[in-house]
Structure formats: C-alpha cells, structure tokens
Design a protein around this nucleic acid. Structure first.
Length: 169
DNA sequence: ACCCCGATCGTA
DNA sequence: ACGATCGGGGTT
C-alpha cells in the first residue's frame, strides 16, 4: 500500500526532490497519474526562479514550509503547478511538467499548462498542504525510472543548468 | 499609473 | 517561427 509522501521528502535539496518525484503518483481529486517530467527552481541565485528577486505576494508560498503547492498564472492563459521544497525561509520548488494519467482514463499530459488545464488546477489550488490535503497529494511508489537531465524549458536565463528531469522513453 | 514580458501551447 | 492573452512586478 503506497504511502503519501511526507513533509521530510519535500524538505530537502530541490535537486534531490525533483528527480525523485519521477515515477511517484500524483493525486488530484478523482484523478491520478505518474509524474514523468519535473524541473527544479532554486533560491535567489537561480535567475529563472520566481523567487530570484525576493519575496512577493505571488511567490510567498515558496518561502514557506516544504510540501505545499505553488500555482501561478502565466502567458495570460495557463496555470503551472509546483511543489515547494527546502527549509522554511529558503525558496525552492519543483515544477510538474509531465503526468501519465491513469485514473480515470489513460492520457499523457506533457507540458505544465496542459496538465493544469486538463486537471482543472487554478489559482484556487495555490498553497495547498500536500501532507494534510485530501484533494492534492503525492503517493510513494517503488518505481524509480531511468531519467535524463536537460536544460529547463522556456527560460531566458539559467539555461546552463541541467535542472529538467524527464523519464527516459 | 504604466509598461514589458513571461517556468506555454497550438498552429503555420 | 509566431501569435494569443493578461497578471505580476519593476519602474516612473
């Protein structure tokens, strides 16, 4: 019986959490799927990180305890879902970019915008505690799929970092 | 108050 | 390669 991931799982280096989330089961309401692609965003020295220039109303949850959702609105039409990592006060998050949906029907959601659009994740789902919520959480899994690390997508700075993690086909 | 541009996606 | 579409955040 797969257990829910604990606060301690998320309260670590983002570069450990992001690849380890691959193969885990994300649950949102009646929908569930296997995480297939993630990206790490880490602190004030990562120019692509929303928290690079300090705390704002939008990114505030990134500065809080690990294990919370961070949902933001982008390009006037899409939401993106992240899980907060690292110690409280240190902003870090993992962007969920790919999900192999299993329930209620198989579907590969590739891309953070498409993922949130299909699951109907919106700003209403920002700052959900993944350890306490029965709506949004992540279940452990024995899967530890092989993956590759590549540059992150859609950013103009920080492209030299190989902080995108995707399950090998 | 204003302006630029973005952790995207679908179409050309 | 590019347009759609609009909120956030830095700047005036």
């Amino acid at each position: 019986m797969a257990e829910r991931l604990s606060r301690d799982f998320f309260n670590r280096s983002t570069l450990l959490v992001a690849p380890e989330l691959l193969g885990k089961i994300m649950v949102f309401g009646s929908m569930a799927g296997v995480i297939t692609e993630t990206e790490a965003y880490i602190g004030q020295n990562d120019p692509a990180c929303h928290a690079a220039r300090g705390k704002t109303p939008r990114n505030a949850v990134m500065f809080g305890p690990a294990g919370f959702s961070y949902v933001y609105f982008i390009y006037g039409m899409y939401y993106c879902l992240n899980f907060v990592t690292e110690d409280e006060g240190f902003p870090g998050a993992v962007l969920i970019r790919g999900l192999m949906l299993i329930e209620p029907s198989p579907l590969h959601l590739n891309g953070p915008g498409k993922l949130c659009r299909h699951l109907r994740i919106t700003r209403d789902h920002n700052a959900i505690d993944l350890i306490e919520s029965n709506l949004l959480y992540v279940k452990d899994s024995p899967l530890a799929p092989p993956y590759e690390a590549t540059p992150r997508i859609g950013i103009s700075r920080g492209q030299e970092k190989l902080w995108r993690f995707m399950v090998k086909k």
